[in-house]
Write a protein that binds this DNA or RNA. Sequence first.
DNA 1: AAAATAAATAACAACGTTGTTATTTTTATG
DNA 2: CATAAAAATAACAACGTTGTTATTTATTTT
Lengths: 330, 330
Amino acid sequence: MTVTIKDIAKVAGVSYSTVSKALNNSPLVKEITKRKILKVAAEMGYEPNLAAKQLVRKKTDVIGLMWPTIERIVLATLVTNISKAFETTSYSMILSVDAPETAMDTFKKFQVDGMIVFGESNSITVSTENIPVVIYGVSGKNESAYPIIDANHEASMQKAVQHLVELGHRRIAYIGHLDQEDALQSEKVEGYEKAMKHFKLDENITIINSNGLNWFDGYTATDIMLEQDKRPTAIIGGSYDISGGILRALQEKGVQVPEDISIVSYDNIPQMATMEVPMTCAGVPVDVLAEEIVHSIIERIESDEEIELVKKLSPTLTERESTGPPPEIL
Amino acid sequence: MTVTIKDIAKVAGVSYSTVSKALNNSPLVKEITKRKILKVAAEMGYEPNLAAKQLVRKKTDVIGLMWPTIERIVLATLVTNISKAFETTSYSMILSVDAPETAMDTFKKFQVDGMIVFGESNSITVSTENIPVVIYGVSGKNESAYPIIDANHEASMQKAVQHLVELGHRRIAYIGHLDQEDALQSEKVEGYEKAMKHFKLDENITIINSNGLNWFDGYTATDIMLEQDKRPTAIIGGSYDISGGILRALQEKGVQVPEDISIVSYDNIPQMATMEVPMTCAGVPVDVLAEEIVHSIIERIESDEEIELVKKLSPTLTERESTGPPPEIL
DNA sequence: AAAATAAATAACAACGTTGTTATTTTTATG
DNA sequence: CATAAAAATAACAACGTTGTTATTTATTTT
């Protein structure tokens, strides 16, 4: 038998409503009785019944995270960070790896107070009724019905290019997955182009399609790139995995990083520091991103005012050993 | 305002207890009233309140999955499969990527009916009270307090070696992560050794430590292996990622797979089919594994009898293009 | 057609909380 | 030291279900 507030009440010799108040640290109960009740509760191993509480409070203090594609390491890191960020709040998080519809059903069933959705807003096909939602993705052109946390790929690319330009680079290539369907990827390429133009490097724009987001895709793309006659002195990798492949390909061809070629990677996760060559990277640090997402959904739940629809975050450039001045060109 | 059974009752002109029965398809209510009530409920967009139901039923129909290390692709695939497997049951699954203690707290709070734990039984440090638990891991020597689903690494290795022996191989090497702490890894190596001895290939036992479970670890280990004078004609890779690295390293050195060297990988996931060279692999197919895990926890919840403590599954050898007869040796 | 039985529905008490209202106890006031 | 005011506690009605018991209605049986 599980112990309820009524059991505690009996033992402590008070009414159960007093127990309820004491457990919620209400100012309506005297300090000394509060302490006594808390002590009894602890001794009896009391665990509150969420269902009962939920039934009367109409609130679960639970937020659902929809995460349909679990096989990408950067997102896995983000999820871990979000989960950690929730620990300091009064909310719990539940995770669903199901298809959006199924996930939504589960969340509705659990009557979550809010939802975090990875991906574009159009991944929400079912009605969310009036459950607050925050999306992590790309704000894009067309307006979304839900607030979006945008990691600001364009600004990241700007920072990456700027860093390399300041080091003296001019021939800066971009290797990434070129996918019209994927707004995330497109924004990176466009950001790169924009930045190059901004620094008057229009004719040096070199974009290589890795045709995928995996380690090996970056590897292959780099091989192809190295065969071309005019090598760039710096490469921007479109993602953690791709940059890993780029680095490996260069190493194998005996190209020194950063002496011969510098690399900056998109994605700002701690793992960048433990790569073969610690990687300079541009992007919103994953812990900041997590904090921001968690903060946003809670604000949206608790505040009545409409929050801003698009929140573009400020990326950081973290300098490590994969970037340096370009080699002297003979 | 959400619609409750009382609202339906009013509209349908019956008592709310009749509505409850009708919605649960009870034989105590006449077919015609049942239909009427169901129709009204649908029209009003009724969604049952889980908390209320839970409060009286003392059951949540929810199972928690503890998954502390989300960054391994094989486990991610398993999670996806488990999630899918639950869809055909009356249970829902919630996922926690937190540390075991935190995860356990969350699950207790949600009053899950059961828990699935990845890893060894000693990862459960907190009391599970009387929540049914099923562990996916290694049964090992010392008895566990909880039922274990064991993917039977030893038998997998036996199958891998047998397959290669039948093809005519004798010099079969094993490349994997040698970690005393990790029972999963140790069992694979031991299984390999046992199988080699079983086929009287004691003096051909070659074990190379990849010092890690990543793609690159397999890659490096293979490089080292190729420098040795007597090459094996076949390699067993300890995991999906490691095998990927092995394959890549061989390709780069111009070693043909399977003409020059055959590879069998541990881990039986669909992704094996889409590698550079479709990979022959040994292990319990991930969908079978998922079904078994889901079935076990549900059985443990619903059946009063004690279920067997250790369930060793039967691995499958899936033959693909990475294995063939050994080259003629001059 | 009245009495006995069966079938269908209604009434109501749980379940474990919270929050509001009613009562008791304590403290301050004249 | 009675009395008013304040503080502390108790009582009780929700919340939306389920399952048990009580009541009504329909169907047999004599």
